[in-house]
C-alpha cells in the first residue's frame, strides 16, 4: 500500500518534470517571470540584512555618558563604580572632571573661554561602551543608569542609530509588502500556467478518470509542476540577487572607503537560496492548488 503510494508520487514527479522539460521556452519564460518577481523582495531583504549588520557593527562603538551630580564626590564615584561592576554592561572608564576640563581646554578656540571660568563647571563622568549595541539594549541601559543615585544626566550618543534602526524597520515593512505583492504575483503566474496545463491535458485527465484515477492522482502532477516551477524560480532569483550584489559590491566598498569606513555586501548564502526555493515551491504549490481546483471544476462542467 505504502509502495503504491510512493510509486504514484514518483509517477507524478516524473510527469511534472516531463511537462517542464517538454515546453522549454514556456518553462524558461515562466521561470524568468517568477525569478524576477522573487528577486525584488529577496534583494530588498538581503540589503536590509546587510545594513542591519552594518548598523550593529557601527553601534558597537556607541557610548553612554553618565554625568554625576557636581556634589557627588569620591563616595558618589565609588557608588557608581560599584554599580557598574555588578551590572557589567560592557567596558567603561571614569573621566574625572579635571580631565574633562583639560580636554575642553585643548579643543580649538575653547582655551580662552575655559580660562575665563571662575571654577570647573564640569562634573565627574563615566563613559560606558556597552557590550551589546542594539538600540533596545542601549535605551534600557540609559533608563537603568538614569535611576541610579548621584546621576545628574545620562547621555546616549546613539540618536543616529535609533533613526537608522527606524529606517531599517520601515524598509523591512516595505520589503514585506513588496514580498506579499510579488508573492501574489507568483501565485497568479502559476495559476495561469497550470490552467493552461489542465486544458492541454484534458484528454489525459478524462482517460485517467475513466480507468480509475482518483482526484489526487489527477491533481498531483500539477501540484508538483507548480512547486517545481516555483522552486526553480526561487533558485533563479537567488542567482540574480547574487549577481546583482556582486556587481554592486565594489562600488559600494569604494563609497564606504571615501567615508573612511568598510562595507562589503554579503550576497545570498546557501540557507537563503534554500529559503527562496522553499518559498517559491510553497507559493507555486498554492497557485497550482487554486488553479487545479477551478480548472477541473470547469472541465467537469
Amino acid at each position: 500500500m505504502m509502495h503504491s503510494w510512493l510509486f504514484q508520487h514518483r509517477v507524478a514527479v516524473s510527469s511534472a518534470v516531463r511537462r517542464l522539460w517538454g515546453a522549454p521556452l514556456n518553462t524558461l519564460l515562466s521561470l524568468l517571470v517568477i525569478g524576477i518577481a522573487l528577486t525584488l523582495p529577496a534583494a530588498g531583504y538581503l540589503l536590509i540584512e546587510n545594513l542591519r549588520v552594518f548598523s550593529a557593527r557601527a553601534s558597537g562603538t556607541q557610548q553612554i555618558s553618565i554625568f554625576l551630580e557636581r556634589e557627588a564626590g569620591r563616595k558618589g564615584v565609588a557608588e557608581i563604580e560599584s554599580r557598574l561592576q555588578s551590572a557589567n554592561p560592557g567596558r567603561w572608564r571614569f573621566v574625572p572632571r579635571e580631565e574633562a576640563l583639560k580636554r575642553l581646554q585643548e579643543s580649538t578656540g575653547m582655551a580662552e573661554v575655559v580660562a575665563s571660568l571662575p571654577r570647573n563647571p564640569l562634573p565627574d563622568a563615566f563613559v560606558v561602551e556597552p557590550a551589546e549595541g542594539s538600540p533596545e539594549v542601549l535605551e534600557a541601559l540609559r533608563q537603568s543608569f538614569t535611576a541610579w543615585p548621584q546621576v545628574a544626566h545620562v547621555q546616549l550618543d546613539s540618536a543616529w542609530v535609533r533613526r537608522f534602526d527606524a529606517l531599517l524597520r520601515l524598509g523591512k515593512l516595505a520589503v514585506t509588502l513588496l514580498a506579499l505583492v510579488f508573492g501574489a504575483g507568483l501565485v497568479a503566474i502559476t495559476f495561469n500556467t497550470i490552467r493552461l496545463q489542465v486544458v492541454s491535458h484534458a484528454a489525459e485527465i478524462e482517460v485517467a478518470r475513466l480507468i480509475g484515477a482518483t482526484n489526487a492522482f489527477v491533481r498531483r502532477p500539477f501540484y508538483y509542476f507548480g512547486a517545481l516551477q516555483g522552486a526553480l524560480g526561487g533558485v533563479l532569483a537567488a542567482l540574480l540577487v547574487g549577481l546583482g550584489f556582486k556587481l554592486l559590491d565594489a562600488p559600494i566598498a569604494e563609497l564606504a572607503a571615501l567615508y573612511g569606513g568598510k562595507f562589503a555586501l554579503a550576497g545570498p548564502g546557501a540557507l537563503d537560496v534554500l529559503l527562496l526555493a522553499v518559498i517559491g515551491a510553497g507559493l507555486g504549490w498554492l497557485g497550482a492548488q487554486l488553479s487545479v481546483s477551478l480548472s477541473l471544476r470547469q472541465l467537469n462542467g
Partner: peptide, 23 residues
Amino acid sequence: KLLFDRSVLANVLLHLQIVGQPP
C-alpha cells in the same frame, strides 16, 4: 480514447500507474 502524446506501451502503463503498480 487513446493518448497520442505517448507510446503504445505508455498508454497501457497509465492504467497500472494509477493503481500504483511498481514500474
